[in-house]
Design a binder for these strands. Structure first.
Length: 501
RNA sequence: GUCCCCAUCGUCCAGAGGCCUAGGACGCGGCCCUUUCAAGGCUGAAACCCGGGUUCGAAUCCCGGUGGGGACGCCA
């Protein structure tokens, strides 16, 4: 079993295409087949090497791998269409000589006019066949005289003929040959057109299963006819439904993130994205949804893929992501969070003591966010505390009954207490504040939270306060100076005292 | 316009003629847990597009309609 993913390097890898790639990979992986990556860069204007590299990078990030393809080579190479031009040329000549193809001299303007006329008359806008019956020697003469010419495939037996194929996900699909206009196979510049290049490549690369988006379903009969003209055995086809946005329109920029890169940058985990993508149009069965990649591969079957388009649901992706975040070891979470903390300006190097410190705080924050990108916001209380701002933001809350006494007692207590570097020390200090003030529960902890973290909400104080204290003790210069609990309490109490009673 | 594909809760999926008073998940509401937010646990509301057949019996099969999507390119 040989499968391929063949993107056009004209931008970022779209999640819809990523899902197609994933399905191909899952099938190859699960069935012991070969997964091949080919680059379809015959659109010279839009294709870039940068995009190609980015797509390959995204595929690898997702955890997909291939042993044959554009950057790893293989015996069916080259795997970049722009490097296979001689192959297409030879095959175009073969079709011409067999009478399956002909030169077309129609100009772009002429074709456009034909199209408009057909549409206006309520006819399908297919090629009218103007050059179909130009005698061979005449067209040769015109080509030799330098007239620009494209090459078209001559659709055989157009009247009454049906092209039928068995789609592995949809079942039998049939098209009347007469709805197929003679497709262009080589452009006037000598560059092959999509429908031609894929057929030549899939055949020569011995692809056995073509799994691609539903948007290609109506290309299939044209391609089948091409296989027939060459005398080649066609591969099996499977057309998977498309991924839509919430409004049922194809997922696009206006819906938000659409590329793998964007989800990656926002702090989604690769295993979460692949797991979620596999859930659109398919189910691992037994009511299970959180299934890792290798297990997905074991269970994946084309016959089980749904027929209807699926709406991309970022909320559900986030839920899957939370699951994998919770399953990630602390060290990985730290590694993932560092770039975001650096961007926030709080971490400038990753010396061992910085990493050690982060290992104590990042995982706790990561347990209650959707994405790694949100970790810094969840940790801002550590790095970005200012008593004045804390007061401004919470002036009303400070006025709750008993708050001032707690805040004063806290400042007083911390003046002499040792740094609250662990949960027990913090609890002991809180307990003494409780004794001093007689406040307990919410009335006790809420003011403490305000004074020490500057916010009314956040991580458990048991974790937050030791994080602050450990950070304050840190001598490393790789991290923003962290203000100690003692300093916070003192400054906050001072600020409160200055308020009108 | 023509052709093709599709149609179960808001969304994703289960359901392959009786097991369906239609099941699970996300999201949403409520409750619980709790020193806060989140997380977590429990719980509730929420769907077989419409109309004809076939059948003792249809979410499941057939036909039509409607709706959505795709294609008809010297884009892929």
């Amino acid at each position: 079993m040989r499968l391929r993913f063949a993107p056009s390097p004209t931008g970022q890898l779209h999640v819809g295409n990523a899902r197609t790639a994933l399905f191909n990979w899952l099938l190859a992986r699960g069935q012991g087949g070969t997964f091949i990556v080919r680059i379809e860069d015959t659109d010279v204007e839009r294709s870039t090497r940068e995009s190609e590299l980015a797509m390959l990078d995204d595929l690898r990030w997702m955890g997909l791998d291939w042993t044959e393809g554009v950057d790893v080579g293989g015996e069916h190479g080259p795997y970049r269409q722009s490097e296979r031009l001689h192959i297409y040329r030879a095959h175009a000549i073969e079709l011409m000589s067999k009478g399956h193809a002909y030169y077309c001299f129609c100009s772009a303007q002429q074709l456009e006019a034909d199209r408009q006329a057909a549409l206006g008359a309520g006819r399908p806008p297919q090629y009218v066949g103007r050059c179909r019956n130009i005698p061979r020697d005449e067209s040769r003469r015109r080509v030799e005289a330098g007239e620009p010419a494209a090459i078209r495939f001559r659709v055989p037996d157009r009247q009454g003929r049906e092209v039928v194929f068995h789609d592995l996900v949809r079942g039998e699909v049939r098209f009347a040959a007469e709805v197929i206009g003679d497709p262009l196979i080589v452009r006037s510049g000598g560059v092959p057109a999509y429908n031609f290049a894929v057929v030549v490549d899939d055949a020569l690369m011995e692809i056995t299963h073509v799994v691609r988006g539903e948007d290609h379903i109506s290309n299939t009969p044209r391609q089948l006819l091409l296989y027939e003209a060459f005398g080649w055995q066609p591969p099996a086809f499977a057309h998977v439904s498309l991924v839509l946005g919430p409004d049922h329109a194809p997922l696009s920029k206006r819906h938000g993130a659409t590329s793998v890169k964007e989800f990656r940058d926002r702090g989604f985990l690769p295993e979460a994205l692949t797991n979620y993508l596999a859930l659109i149009g398919w189910s691992p069965g037994e009511g299970q949804e959180l299934v890792p990649l290798e297990e997905l591969a074991r269970r994946f079957r084309l016959e089980d893929v749904g027929h209807s388009a699926g709406v991309f649901d970022v909320e559900k992706l986030a839920w899957v992501n939370r699951h994998y975040l919770k399953a990630s070891p602390p060290q990985r979470l730290v590694e993932l969070a560092i770039p975001y903390l650096q961007r926030a300006g709080w971490v400038s190097n990753t010396s061992p003591d910085v990493v050690e410190f982060l290992t104590h705080v990042v995982p706790a924050a990561a347990m209650s966010v959707d994405r790694v990108e949100q970790v810094p916001a969840r940790l801002s209380f550590v790095f970005d505390y200012a008593a004045a701002r804390a007061l401004d933001d919470n002036a009303i809350r400070v006025e709750a009954k008993g708050s001032r006494t707690v805040i004063d007692a806290l400042a007083e207590e911390l003046r002499t207490a040792p740094p609250l570097v662990d949960r027990e020390t913090f609890r002991a200090a809180a307990s003494r504040v409780k004794d001093r003030t007689g406040q307990k529960g919410k009335a006790l902890f809420h003011p403490i939270r305000l004074a020490l973290t500057g916010a009314a909400e956040g991580l458990e104080l048991d974790i937050a306060v030791p994080a602050i204290e450990r950070g304050a003790l840190l001598r490393s210069t790789g991290i923003t100076r962290i203000i100690s609990a003692r300093e916070r309490a003192a400054a906050f109490a001072e600020g409160v005292a200055a308020l009108e009673p």
